[in-house]
Design a protein around this nucleic acid. Sequence first.
DNA 1: AAGGCTATGTTGACAGTGTCAAGATAAAAC
DNA 2: GTTTTATCTTGACACTGTCAACATAGCCTT
Lengths: 201, 201
Amino acid sequence: MANAVQSYHHGDLRSALIEAATARLSEHGVDSLSLRKLAEDAGVSRTAPYHHFKDKSALLSAIAAKGFSDWHSAAKRIFDQEDKTPKARFREFVHEYIGYAADNPEMYELMFGRTIWQNQAATNDLKDVAFPCFQFQVTMTRYWQEKGLLPNNQDALRLAQVTWGTLHGIARLLIDGIYADSSHIDEMCDCAADLFMQKQV
Amino acid sequence: MANAVQSYHHGDLRSALIEAATARLSEHGVDSLSLRKLAEDAGVSRTAPYHHFKDKSALLSAIAAKGFSDWHSAAKRIFDQEDKTPKARFREFVHEYIGYAADNPEMYELMFGRTIWQNQAATNDLKDVAFPCFQFQVTMTRYWQEKGLLPNNQDALRLAQVTWGTLHGIARLLIDGIYADSSHIDEMCDCAADLFMQKQV
DNA sequence: AAGGCTATGTTGACAGTGTCAAGATAAAAC
DNA sequence: GTTTTATCTTGACACTGTCAACATAGCCTT
């Protein structure tokens, strides 16, 4: 249950698998990620991973969990910059969100894709990390409402869903290859930010 | 090249495959869609489909093409209702877009998913149907700008990308199972519509 | 320390998958 | 009537995830 440090058979296969998977993920994409190759990378046999993960989906969930943890920290760091105005932080958040997706397309696909969420397949471990991340979006939205940046006549939850939906949608259209031209990312971000904040313009 | 009507070997295998695929798609999802099963459905051997489609992706593209054609018609029908105000039509469009995705999740996933778009894998046939569909979104956006519904100080293309991004994002969060609670779809749609039209409120 | 328990890792096997190569058949073209 | 071409077939290959049965090595209790 705990992380054994250099114990008997392999050492810490669980960590080794996640590490190998993360490496393969960013290089070759989530679709060409096979348990057998990961096992080979770690120097064990094909079925060894099954002693650490229920199935492939569970392994993917573990990788995604780390992604959520990382992104949650990044979001907090942006939001907590007290030397910047709320407006500047909001704009920065928009750019950083899309930037994160553009820089880590395969990780983003994994975190917010149907692979691990569909059919209530999400692990509890995953939910424990992801839900606070979603919740933080609502917290920020409420703050921006209080600061008069976002419209106050909307329910915070709905507003958070819509603003997040916007960022998510743009991110997906980019990383899924539907926006073939990715040279105007920053302009799209600014347009989205302006649109939400238009009352102040 | 043309659609043979009840010709020699099978008749019209191409159509039969697309039909079988569409049926299986809505029932079992795009992930469990295999060429071998489709061939079996059509009563031919496993490799027969390869005489009508270059590979699996080409078959999927053909199905998606029909989806785009259908949705394009639906969008036009909504937009062209001259008995309704632009505002009412805009709101209806938002609801219908999300509604289409919610009612045909697997088709939506196929049309706007990475499966057929990634790595420039999209067929020319697909692009010929999809791009006018995307373009129509820009046309509508420009119209709504002229009518004063959407902000006029934004570039029409950027604005279309952002508004479409919003709808796409909400749709994906819904059909990918990330929004576990799908009981407030209409409220989310209204919130999104209000947000874009807030200048008029 | 001895023996059993449990975690971990192994090989073998099975049912799938997409796709290529080579051969068969039937319609069309000449 | 012969040749060409489109279509369909079987055989095969390299993959995949996953289960069952077995082997090993560290831990725990006696």
